[in-house]
Amino acid sequence: SNGDLPPTMPMAELDHLAQIISKSHLETCQYLREELQQMSWQSFLQDEVDSYQNKPQEVMWQLCAVKITEAIQYVVEFAKRIDGFMDLCQNDQIVLLKAGSLEVVLLRMCRVFDSQNNTVFFDGKFAGPEVFKALGCDDLIMAVFDFAKSMCLLHLSEDELALFSAFILLSADRSWLQEKLQVEKLQQKTQLALQHVLQKNQREDGVLNKVLRVTALRSLCSRHTEKLCAFRAVYPDIVRTHFPPLYKELFSA
């Protein structure tokens, strides 16, 4: 509902906020679109696919944990550059990042996803879902690929994706927030800026679709946590000694 939104925000302020968030997104997006386009023909060859598929489960899990952690470091940097984020208390910064950083990684995945070939940029080349077979999480991988494909269909511009990512990161309904009201204000401002940009881009009819995707994002992230729990139950030492400390802080605590 828009009932709780501040009635108006000056157009110039909305533009300014959209510009800052868009700039922060571009500065921290890990790969530029042009770089990705140049690499788009580089898919894994069959023997490379075989080599990923033949890796022991724990080795593939570790590799994916490292890649996710790298992507999350860029999301943390994005968060730091969102107007007002660093003014929140540290507890809330941590709560928002713990709950939202993987969701933003998944949102950003549409930038590194090739819908035509159903491949995603991973470990230097474009990989299909079969590359991740050794993880033993086919259902989750399929769901992630389907999500990326559905995001790609929206053809979000960089500024729309930037604002949507910030909107997700600033979700005021996360558990354990201490200053919920302040987060709510930031999220509302971001939502207004997103609506403003969508209207400017003549795409206001897509807002609802995008907001609905929040449920899908949350479900993917909780499924990731479940899979990690199951993996950790079998390989507790691998997680403890070989997984990136940041990944453990975010998902394993």
Partner: peptide
């Protein structure tokens, strides 16, 4: 704080993967 040491460090750091 101890539980989220790395996150705290990343939030405090002025250097980032973006600058490296």
């Amino acid at each position: 704080k101890e539980k989220h040491k790395i996150l705290h460090q990343l939030l405090q750091n002025s250097t980032s993967p973006v600058d490296l």
